[in-house]
């Protein structure tokens, strides 16, 4: 019983930490981008201010909005919180981790996406349908690539639970895994596509010719919009956390050693900050692609992931 309480507490601490830290992560990425582009940024806490503002506004709904439109933000936010509780960020002793493995995690992301697309089409505006179609185009290509990325560490560790993957990878002898490097490159490409970052989508644009993610949420306002924005931030953080868990898991607590948690939290913050800086650099040096180049980009990601898996399977490296 005590064990269960402990793992439940560690689970709760991690989930709350990720959900609360997510807007800060987004703020950090934006700040880094601003610095790299020679602007003075909006400040690290800007996403919190935006959320605060949006939560205090009155929500406007279209006349023909159905239940799906109203429920979608809550479902999206719920999915992202669930995803945040599956991915180990501080320690691997998570109460939820037996409930869902990496494949289920991909499913959770897909669920959120389906509802955001349905909601976008619900009101019947042209932009919503356009955004939903583009989102589905990108998703149908990035999802198999993401699954393939997961298969490489899965084959190395022989387990599909993220917690045991992290446990095994963080506490092994030093070894060069070319297959993991391939998977990491593929994962970064998928991360850019799934989180609507440059070069696939520009999160700061409202230009109708190019937007994907923004087109989906044009009809939302106030608390609904706030939840979606927050869910987007959590999604970005969770993706970075997955990347850290798979490719740089050092410093994570094994079991429930409460004394180690501050150190793990410090390591996490440093790693997330580095990931955010890297993301900002990537976004600054690359230009947005035409949307019809996105299949090629994601095809490359799929290729890298499959190559990683092949090298693992056939070379044993």
């Amino acid at each position: 019983m005590a064990e269960f309480v402990e793992s439940f507490l560690s689970q709760l601490a991690q989930t709350v930490l990720v959900v609360l830290l997510a807007p800060l992560m987004l703020g950090w990425v934006n700040q880094c981008r601003a610095w790299l582009q020679n602007r003075s940024g909006p400040g690290l806490l800007q996403p919190y201010r935006v959320l605060h503002k949006l939560f205090h506004k009155d929500a406007l709904l279209a006349h023909n909005a159905s239940v799906i439109f109203r429920a979608a933000p809550y479902i999206q936010f719920g999915c992202m919180v669930l995803a945040a509780s599956i991915v180990p960020v501080l320690g691997t002793n998570l109460a939820f981790s037996p409930a869902a493995d990496v494949i289920a995690l991909v499913g959770v992301f897909a669920l959120a996406r389906v509802f955001s697309s349905l909601a976008a089409m619900d009101v019947g505006t042209a932009f919503g349908s356009l955004g939903a179609r583009r989102e589905m185009l990108v998703a149908s290509l990035s999802e198999p690539a993401l699954l393939m990325v997961f298969f490489t560490p899965l084959l190395i560790v022989q387990s599909s639970s993220l917690s045991s993957i992290v446990d095994a990878l963080a506490h092994r002898d030093f070894a060069i895994y070319p297959s993991l490097a391939f998977a990491a490159v593929a994962f970064i490409m998928v991360l850019l596509a799934e989180n609507a970052r440059i070069p696939v989508d520009n999160p700061a644009t409202h230009l109708e010719l190019t937007m994907i993610h923004e087109a989906l949420i044009l009809e939302y306002s106030a608390r609904h919009l706030a939840l979606i924005e927050w869910a987007t931030a959590v999604k970005l953080t969770v993706y970075c956390a997955i990347g850290i868990a798979l490719f740089a898991p050092w410093g994570m607590v094994e079991g429930t050693n409460w004394l180690m948690f501050p150190a793990a939290a410090g390591a996490l913050v440093i790693k997330l900050a580095l990931a955010g800086t890297g993301l900002a650099v990537l976004e600054t040096v690359s230009a947005k692609m035409r949307i019809f180049r996105a299949p090629e980009f994601l095809g490359m990601a799929f290729l890298f992931a499959v190559l990683g898996m092949l090298i693992r399977q056939l070379l044993g490296a």
């Binding site: 070894a175 060069i176 070319p178 297959s179 391939f182 290729l303 190559l307 070379l315 490296a317």
Partner: peptide, 24 residues
């Protein structure tokens, strides 16, 4: 696996990557 084998495997993987990059 010894370090040199690992390094050789890494080089082999890089060569494969470059071959695909040339193809594209």
């Amino acid at each position: 696996m010894t370090l040199s084998t690992q390094l050789i495997n890494l080089m082999a993987a890089l060569l494969l990557l470059i071959a695909f990059a040339m193809l594209a």
